[in-house]
Amino acid sequence: MQAKPYFEIVFGSSGRWLLNKLYRISDLFGFFVVCVKTAFSYRKTGRRLMVRTTIQQIYFTGFESLELISLIALLVGGLVVIQGIAQLTRVGSREVLASLLSVVIIREVGPLLTAVIVTLRSGTAIAIEMGYMTVLREIESIEMQGINPMHLLAIPRLVGVTVAVVCLILFFDVLSMFGGFVVAWALVDVPLWTLFNDLARAVTGTDFIVGSVKAFLFGVTIALVCLYHGFKTGDAITNIPPQVSRAVVDCFLICIFFNVLISALFYL
């Protein structure tokens, strides 16, 4: 038995896998830099069209997601409180319910779950749209109009998704608090105003900053990753599904990585 080819295959394939990942990450950075450069160099061009496209993106990603986000937020808030009451009753400490809500929802679950919903709902739509535009030569048509497609297509989506995610995370936090309050009020018979005051005391300025930073980074990440994979589709329509799948996986991974990083930076 020859051992060498086996090791060659293992090391070779793992090396290739790692390099592919690194290339993809470096490509993403490059794409981000190009987006930022484009946004600045074309800042005075086509502003009305850009504003309109951005508003459309906020509408699709933000306003149209509101229904889904609200429902999930109310349920998650209730869920956290139910578990909180179940566990905290054992140690006889229901007073920390507000702290639990603030820690679990405002700091972690709210931003992450909103990012997941936006990725699944809008991120995939962006990746598919860009994929089709690439395959059907629509991007070439836009280029032949003397328009930089990065400017017309990428920047409004980047800005729109980021703004929408920031707004949605705020909505998610507030609505899940409300859901949690209602459940707490129903189960524990604690006056809502008491819980409200507890929460106001439990939330810190850092929570606001962390929430905003996370929201901003998640918005940028989702838009950027989905646009990147959409533009990368190439010539074949069969490339669209795998690119969308990669976009979703990359969004999850990068968002979770940022979540851990920011939490570690601010709370450790």
Partner: peptide, 28 residues
């Protein structure tokens, strides 16, 4: 109507943000 709804969405978000800041600020 899309522009109006998006405007309302952003405005509502700002109001919620202001309200939250006010409530937390009061607590703090």
């Amino acid at each position: 109507s899309m522009e109006k709804l998006t405007g309302a969405f952003i405005l509502l978000t700002l109001l919620i943000l202001l309200f939250t800041v006010a409530v937390v600020g009061r607590g703090k």
